[in-house]
Amino acid sequence: MGMKRKWGALLAAILAAAVLAGCGGQSKAPAGSGSGDASGLPAQVEKIKNAGVLKVGVKEDVPKFGYLDPAKNVHEGMEIDLAKRIAKEIFGDETKVEFTGVNAKTRGPALDNGEIDMVIATFTITEERKLSWNFSDPYFTDYVGFLVLESSGIQSWKDLDGKTIGVAQSASTRAALTEQAEEDGITVQFMEFATYPEIKAALDSGRIDAFSVDQSILWGYKDDKNVMLPDKFAPQEYGIATKKSNTELAEFVNNIIKEMKASGEMDQLYEKWGLK
């Protein structure tokens, strides 16, 4: 009988440990306060300030936007600068940002489970997505483009009639291209992959005839064996996303974007990163 009680206790201990571990990710020890004037910040922003660091989901494989340089091991790009700008607004210190690498598939869920405060990761604003997350005003407009192997002889979008196009899961590319294909009276097939390197590998191996995502992303995969088609479609407006319930935070972020656009600060960012 004694042993059974012991097992019960052990089980209880494990369950308790599991629950604690589950919560551990969310509990934040309040960092030493007193830095700067706290008044005026909405409660949700204040909460981030108390946590001592802004957690941002960014791309790590999109040069000029969000890129983790393997040689230097630092994040860089215009979206990284946006994150730093927001951190500066909250903490008065642009270094208080913690970057988490996300891809098209993981960025939404990472917001929902509270692992990150916001996503600045070439995230296109769509009506469907607005049901799940808050989006700021667009900070950049990109277009869907195409990368094909030079040896394929494909010259334009219309040449892709009857061909297979590789797209990223969770990207809005597929819907946009389906519509465009209908309009132009051509038929295309799609294959979906979780990550960009996989689409590139599929292009190189001839599994797909074209690699199609936002052009900003495609440039990162341009090499001397492939070419960018001149066609581009479907404007993709990038917004900063926050968890649906974090409406105050969303408004706070949106004000920063508005201000940056009005003051010309955003144009400076485009210039810095050679965009547009």
Partner: peptide, 19 residues
């Protein structure tokens, strides 16, 4: 889920140098 363990790293290298 995007964790770059051995297979993931291999795919990334393949993506960079595949052509």
């Amino acid at each position: 889920v995007g964790v770059q363990e051995l297979t993931g790293k291999g795919v990334i290298i393949l993506g960079q140098h595949g052509s």
